[in-house]
C-alpha cells in the first residue's frame, strides 16, 4: 500500500500536482485561493497549496526509504532481544528500531533539499509566488547574467551547506562513523 502510493506520488511532477490541486480545491471545492502572490500581506491560507504540492512529491520517496531500512533493522538481533526482554512494542519501535533505521533516510532527506530547491522554482512559478525561483527564472528568460550568477551561487551554497550538515548529522546518528 505504502509502496504503491509512493510510486504514484513520485510519478506526478510538481507542476502536474499543482494543476490537479488547483482544479480540485480552487475550481471544484472553492476552498482555497489559487495563487500565493501575498499581495495583501502574509496570508497562511495562500501557503497551503504550494506546501502541499512540495510535500506530496517528496513524502512518497522518503516513506519508501524509511520502509526499506526499517524492514532491514527489524530483522536484526538487538530488536529480537529487546522484544524478548519484554519491552513494550512501542518502545522497541521508537527507541531501538527507529533511531537505527533513520540513518539512511536522513541522508536521503538532506539530499532531497537539493531537489526541493528545483521544486521550489516550479511551485513558485505555478502559484505566482514572488521568491527565489521566480527571480531565477525571470533572470534566465531575460538573459540577465548577473542575477543568474547570484542566484546560482545562493543555490550552490544552500546545496553544499546541507550536504555538510548531512555529514555532521550522520555522525550523531551513527557514532561508528568517523571522518578523518
Amino acid at each position: 500500500m505504502v509502496s504503491i502510493t509512493s510510486v504514484i506520488t513520485t510519478s506526478i511532477p510538481e507542476f502536474a500536482s499543482a494543476v490537479f490541486f488547483i482544479t480540485i480545491f480552487v475550481f471544484g471545492l472553492k476552498w482555497l485561493p489559487g495563487t500565493s502572490t501575498m499581495a495583501n500581506g502574509f496570508d497562511p491560507l495562500q501557503l497551503v497549496l504550494p506546501v502541499m504540492v512540495l510535500v506530496i512529491y517528496d513524502f512518497g520517496y522518503v516513506a519508501r526509504m524509511t520502509r526499506a531500512s526499517m524492514a532491514e533493522v527489524m530483522t536484526t538481533h538487538y530488536i529480537r532481544t529487546a522484544v524478548l526482554k519484554g519491552l513494550p512494542y512501542r518502545r522497541v519501535i521508537m527507541n531501538h528500531a527507529l533511531r537505527n533505521a533513520l540513518i539512511a533516510p536522513f541522508t536521503v532527506i538532506m539530499l532531497q533539499i537539493n531537489w526541493l530547491l528545483s521544486g521550489v522554482i516550479v511551485v513558485e512559478v505555478a502559484f505566482a509566488y514572488k521568491g527565489f525561483g521566480a527571480l531565477l527564472l525571470e533572470a534566465s528568460l531575460n538573459q540577465d547574467i548577473y542575477v543568474i550568477e547570484a542566484c546560482a551561487m545562493v543555490a550552490v551554497f544552500v546545496a553544499v551547506g546541507t550536504q555538510t550538515l548531512a555529514d555532521i548529522g550522520y555522525t550523531f546518528l551513527n557514532p561508528r562513523i568517523r571522518f578523518s
Partner: peptide, 14 residues
C-alpha cells in the same frame, strides 16, 4: 552535482 538540477537546467538553457 553540487548544483541543484533544475537550477543547472535553467542556467544551461538560458
Amino acid at each position: 552535482l553540487s548544483f541543484p538540477v533544475l537550477v543547472l537546467y535553467v542556467i544551461v538553457i538560458a
